[in-house]
Amino acid sequence: MIVIEYLAYFLITLGAVFLFLGALGIFRMPDIYTRIQAGTKSSTLGAMSLVLGTGLLGFVSFTPGYPWLIKTIIIVIFVAIANPLSSHALARGAYKDKIAPFTKENIDAYQEVEKNIEEEMEDAK
């Protein structure tokens, strides 16, 4: 029991630190795509480990403890599936909104595909 409690404290601290680092990444990065990268990874692992740590802490602290663990595991699975999906949709939306990615060596394989799609749409009109 005491081992689970210390594991829960460790997970909660780790989650808070990663949530903070994700916000710092959003603050410092140069363009939208790098901001999405920093934000989505850190906020996913941060929220997952903070919520799971709280669930473990609730599991050992209250007498019917299992609902805490089951409900928090549902939230963890939902966050792990939904957060990458929404960031992927947002990155594609930003590209279709003509926000050019910040590059140093001009590597952009998606540019031609995007041009072809636009030409096809104009032909259809």
């Binding site: 916000a23 901001r35 934000g39 941060g46 929220a47 939230i75 966050v79 947002l90």
Partner: peptide, 15 residues
């Protein structure tokens, strides 16, 4: 993106 990060912080803190 910024609002999404803030809302995930709110979820974790609410739990």
């Amino acid at each position: 993106v910024a609002l999404d990060t803030i809302s995930f912080m709110a979820i974790a803190l609410m739990v």
